[in-house]
Simulated assay, not measured.
Amino acid sequence: MPPRRRKFWLWFFLVLVMGAAGGAALLWTAQATLVQPLAVGTDGLRIEVDSGSSLSRVLHRLEQQGAVQHPRIIRIYARLKDQTSIHQGEYMIPAGSNAMDLVARLHRGDVTRYRVTLVEGWTFQQALMQIRASDRIVKTPAGESPQAAAAALGIDGNPEGQIFPDTYVYRSGIRDIDLLRQAHARLQKVLSQEWEARADGLPYDDAYEALVMASIVEKETGAPWERDEIAGVFVRRIEKGMRLQTDPTVIYGLGASYDGNLLRSHLRQATPYNTYVIGGMPPTPIALVGREAIHAALHPKDGDSLYFVAKGDGTHHFSASLAEHNRAVRKYQLQRRSNYRSSPAAAESESPTESEQ
């Protein structure tokens, strides 16, 4: 073989060997990049993916933090797996995760979920404060007050009682008004379902009036099994043209001026919610209402009781006559006056009696 040809094949063989060696090295680097655990520490790594972020941008940021190496190799892997699209949100990357886990997690949108619980009997304002207390929920002008929220939700007037008390799961970055919309839609769905299955002959013109009654039942009930019996008392009083005379409505009407001590003078104070003064029900609900209270308002227990008095243990004594009720009031007042609460009031007169403390 001529020297020139021999030299050509020698260089060709050398380049081939070097190429094979380089390919092997590249293959080894790629494999190591994809399977080795990310440098996220023993507690893992929390990352925030903003709206519009790309996989390349996220990988670049993680490279700067020292969590990943060779982001180009990871991008090529994601392209081959058709996993380049990612979702907005907050992610927790556990210790021991590798680049393949990271890509799959971002592509699936396995964001960290949080929970906020709205409690039965809370006011709308209390629920709003609970939602806006989380720094993971974006605060908007629509969530600054019940009035602003009502306008955003399309509610005319006071939005009290028009969100459903429940535990809501959300992603970091959700807006307060979007959580309120979920809770409002949930309330409308539950109320509609219960209204369609209501008992016959109820003294409500529409589902909203039933919601108002349910809110009173919610606030008056200490023992869950008494909800329908309490509802029965109030329904019978409405049917007989009697005032409801229930303390929670008075307290709601007092608003911020109520300091935890309900006085006899409060029972005479005229507000749209004072059912010692007004006939029928207050103009709006007075609290957030659970399904059980709505069901009780729409399925009140039959009977003849028109009064009830707290016994001091969370339950009530129910009475059909004023004389029986007054005896029960004296009994439970003497036993535990500090826990006493008579509702409806012990007398039908305009002036509160001894039982109407």
Rank of each mutant, 00 (worst) to 15 (best):
R136L: 13
E356N: 15
Q83K: 12
L153W: 14
N261M: 00
P283G: 00
R46V: 02
T140C: 10
R75C: 03
N98W: 06
I251V: 12
A231V: 00
S351T: 13
W28R: 14
L59Q: 06
A347F: 04
T123I: 09
V17G: 15
V250A: 10
D247G: 08
T167Q: 03
E348I: 04
G303N: 15
A95I: 01
G154M: 02
N326I: 04
R132N: 11
I177N: 07
G312A: 12
R341C: 10
A293N: 07
T284V: 04
T140N: 00
V35C: 11
A21Q: 04
G222C: 02
R4E: 13
A310M: 07
R337W: 15
I294Y: 15
T33I: 11
V277I: 14
R115G: 01
A152L: 07
L106V: 01
A104T: 10
R243S: 09
G280W: 00
R175D: 05
P283E: 07
A32K: 10
E354H: 11
F308L: 10
I251S: 06
Q245L: 01
I177M: 10
I238V: 08
V138T: 13
Q269E: 14
H317I: 07
A32S: 14
L128D: 03
R175M: 05
A214G: 06
R330N: 04
A24S: 12
N98F: 04
F308I: 01
P3G: 06
S305N: 15
L298I: 07
W9A: 08
D302S: 14
L298K: 10
V68E: 08
L179P: 00
F308H: 15
T353G: 14
E239R: 08
L59M: 03
A24L: 15
P352C: 02
A231D: 12
A104D: 09
K301F: 15
A223C: 04
Y340C: 12
P2S: 07
A78T: 07
F308V: 05
I93H: 12
D313I: 09
G109M: 02
K139G: 06
S215D: 09
R5T: 09
T246P: 11
G253M: 08
